[in-house]
Design a protein around this nucleic acid. Structure first.
Lengths: 227, 227
DNA sequence: ACCTGAACACCGTTCAAGT
DNA sequence: ACCTGAACACCGTTCAAGT
């Protein structure tokens, strides 16, 4: 045996990211701490700096993990908008389980292989759709960002991570809306429930994806080209 | 004279929010600190707690300030999509000067009078457009959030607040993209400049607003109704 | 009512050592 | 190469007083 058994495994950056993701899922982004991660891995805080330049670097690694979880659909002969929908759905599937971390993604897509490939595919589809490069860049970014927004602003999700606190927060918010002046805020009152909790999460996300696809379709230069 | 002149003015929460906004604009959201705000107002940190429950409450007040700066256009006889465009443009105008603070808004719109009125108007327009209440709620939220995303992810803005550091960051990011494998990332390479810095900020924001309007229009139930 | 002072329980990070 | 230990310069917030 060339190695001692029972030797504490060498610090693994992937495992640190996994811990960080678990912490964020359970207690929010603010619960991620260099010191806490170090403690959970039986090591001094400074040990983490061998693998991450600073805390922001660690958060970037978190975003990268989510992006790496995207299973990009293979390019096909489907019309561009069908392919775009599938692409966005794939991103959404990777991001949905981690609402606390989702917001880290938009500013960090270009920092990881997975993110770059995601952008590459998106731009390719939009070029196929007839967008000039600059417009494709912006429209593609907006479409991808809208998925993150969908997750981070899903009614009832941002409230809190603890289920009990969450229910209380939702009830309180709902009560506040219901107590508004009906003359001044008729539509808000009518939408009080929908604004505070998602009635049907699946159709919420389906509609959200369609919103992005429709935005792209509506901006397409030659809208008469057969698809 | 019933008052001493030169008496330090009583602590004014509005002035504290103003200071916080200035700090965030100049140095980012992370530079906002209870202790620093207290110092700038010649007071003990604990003095601020008389006006803000905690730091999150102060951040909510920041978001409220931005929302209060929105000059809602008067309802008119214009078609709903024209009015929606004007509404979104008004929001954008209020948010654009404060990219570091913009991200606070989405989860806090329903906590302020200004935000509630904004949502009320949006829902009214979408009802006019034929959306059922639940869809209007989601689609309206998405449209408003997309403006925030536009500001917080404007290429070249998120990099840094200091102009020199910012230019360096942009150059570095651009160089990184230009060094990618052309076979693997042809579209990303072609879009390297557009991805790192906005060539024309005005058309960037115009296109962004159109994206949101197009998303809404594309999801409208009875799309054949005359507008 | 409005503000102070001291203290508590944390942070991220630098620097110099250890092995 | 990989990790430790001590220290620095911060945080937000509680609690008990002051006037």
């Amino acid at each position: 045996m060339s190695k001692d058994t029972g030797t504490p495994a060498r610090l693994d950056p992937d495992k640190i990211v996994t811990s960080a993701l678990r912490i964020a899922d359970a207690e929010g982004l603010g619960a991620i701490t260099i010191r806490r991660l170090a403690q959970e891995h039986g090591v001094t805080p400074m040990a983490l700096y061998r693998y991450f330049r600073d805390k922001d670097d660690l958060l970037a690694a978190l975003a990268e993990r989510l992006l790496a979880d995207v299973h990009l659909p293979e390019p096909s002969d489907d019309p561009w908008d069908r392919q775009l929908r599938a692409l966005l759905a794939a991103c959404l599937a990777a991001v949905r389980p981690h609402p606390a971390v989702a917001g880290l993604i938009p500013t960090r897509v270009l920092l990881s292989e997975a993110g770059l490939m995601l952008v590459e595919r998106t731009l390719a589809l939009l070029a196929e759709a007839g967008f000039p490069p600059d417009q494709a860049t912006e429209v593609g970014s907006q479409a991808l960002c809208s998925l993150v927004t969908l997750v981070t602003t899903e009614p009832g999700v941002a409230e809190s991570t603890d289920p009990d606190t969450r229910d209380d927060a939702i009830r309180a918010k709902r009560a506040a809306l219901h107590s508004l002046a009906p003359k001044r805020y008729p539509h808000v009152l009518a939408a009080a429930d929908a604004l505070t909790l998602c009635a049907d999460r699946e159709s919420y996300y389906e509609l959200g994806v369609e919103f992005a696809v429709a935005g792209v379709r509506g901006l397409r230069p030659q809208s008469r080209t057969a698809h």
